[in-house]
Design a binder for these strands. Structure first.
Lengths: 225, 225
DNA sequence: GTCTGTTTGAAACATACGTTTGAAGCACAT
DNA sequence: ATGTGCTTCAAACGTATGTTTCAAACAGAC
């Protein structure tokens, strides 16, 4: 069977297990037994566990970043000259994510969960890998955000972007569990698309909130250090 | 020295290392050597590594939840009858966190980072422990949120609360790294207090955003499944 | 001092991990 | 058929982990 589907089977299993359990909590033996391949296959095809982690990210991040670039291009054409609004920028991002061709029905939530883990689990090697591989679409997104929120100071913008990332990564990364809870509690079904549709207005409103450091109640103000 | 400070030395070291590196990435040998105690001391005093993790959380979560209960009591008195506003509720929460007596200068960020990890690293035993130990202040907070946002549907409120939790847990769990980046990029120093002061308005604005499912641009709308 | 219960210490235990090895299996060109 | 290059396989390697063991050290009561 051509260059053997071993590589893909490993990637599929690794992706799912990493998303479920994190990186250090997932052993090569779990991966290879789920993928039904020999233990040595990972080191043979990828070289090391860390390299496998990089490959898992590369497999979905490379096409995603291409899709995103194109979507940003279209957006800028559509806006000819004028900088896109915050809402437009956020929508383009979430649409690109949601529209990515999925390997299976869990695709989008695995995708999100992995992104969240990449930020959260301070695996030095991963962060370095992502920075040098995907710095371009990332900084382009940042530039668009900057142009869409000229009223914010650089520091305010920086932190609010982190808040957005957090809300997104966290929600999407546990979207399965959260959907289950909601179904049990309120008997409502939700798709990832609907979650995204709820998330974007939340983020946009947060980004455009009034100046951050004007505390709302004098007696409630936190003393500055 | 009384019942020996071994227990506290272990807790101090464990707390710091867990916050820095996560749970599975921190070995008992790292902890005991940092604490300058014998390896066996952990299992002697705590029983197991998992029990040590619970003890680390218990040590700061129990006083925190007491502080929080009192703060909620005061808030409700201050509002006599009327339900507290969203801003008030969020401020009371962050103030209670920020004002907790700190063991050292890193106290608050360790505190936050651990809370973030607790949500993020899906350690089953930890989640179960936290749920059955601290369900009361948690559900009280939820009740206050509900009363503060009567205009939201239950489903909207549910998702927006998840967004808030995500933004908070994520930001706080990597607050050190994020502060470093900001220092290198813009040469600005930030305290955890300031992060909290920026976070609250962001969250409040997001919670009170216009109805979630009115998409902003027709041609950008995500097709409903 | 001597006994008693608790705490510490060095060493070992069993297990799990990532990685390496070298033989076997396989497809395919010659 | 034979040789060649790639892939699979079972087994082992070395190291690190959480936990247990049991003797030594210690503190306080008598």
């Amino acid at each position: 069977m051509a260059q053997s589907d071993t590589v893909d089977r490993i990637l599929d299993a690794a992706e799912e297990l990493f998303a479920e359990r994190g990186f250090s909590e997932t052993s090569l033996r779990m991966i290879t037994s789920k993928a039904k391949v020999n233990l040595a296959a990972v080191n043979y095809h990828f070289g090391s566990k860390n390299a496998l982690i990089h490959a898992v990210f590369g497999r979905f991040l490379t096409p995603f970043s291409a899709t995103l670039e194109k979507a940003f291009d279209e957006l800028e054409v559509r806006c000819d000259g004028k900088p896109p609004t915050l809402n437009q920028t956020l929508w383009v991002l979430t649409e690109s994510a949601v529209r990515m061709p999925q390997r299976n029905e869990k695709g989008i939530s695995i995708f999100m969960r992995l992104l969240g883990l990449a930020y959260t689990q301070s695996q030095g090697h991963l962060r370095k890998f992502l920075e040098q591989e995907y710095s371009e679409p990332f900084s382009r997104f940042m530039r668009l955000l900057k142009e869409a929120t000229p009223q914010l100071s650089a520091v305010d913008r920086y932190w609010r972007i982190q808040f957005m990332l957090g809300a997104t990564a966290f929600t999407m990364s546990s979207s399965d569990a959260l959907q289950d809870i909601l179904r049990n509690k309120l008997g409502v079904d939700t798709t990832v698309q609907e979650i995204a549709a709820r998330l974007v207005p939340f983020l946009a409103a947060g980004m455009q909130a009034q100046d951050a450091l004007l505390a709302p109640r004098a007696e409630s103000k936190i003393p500055v250090a």
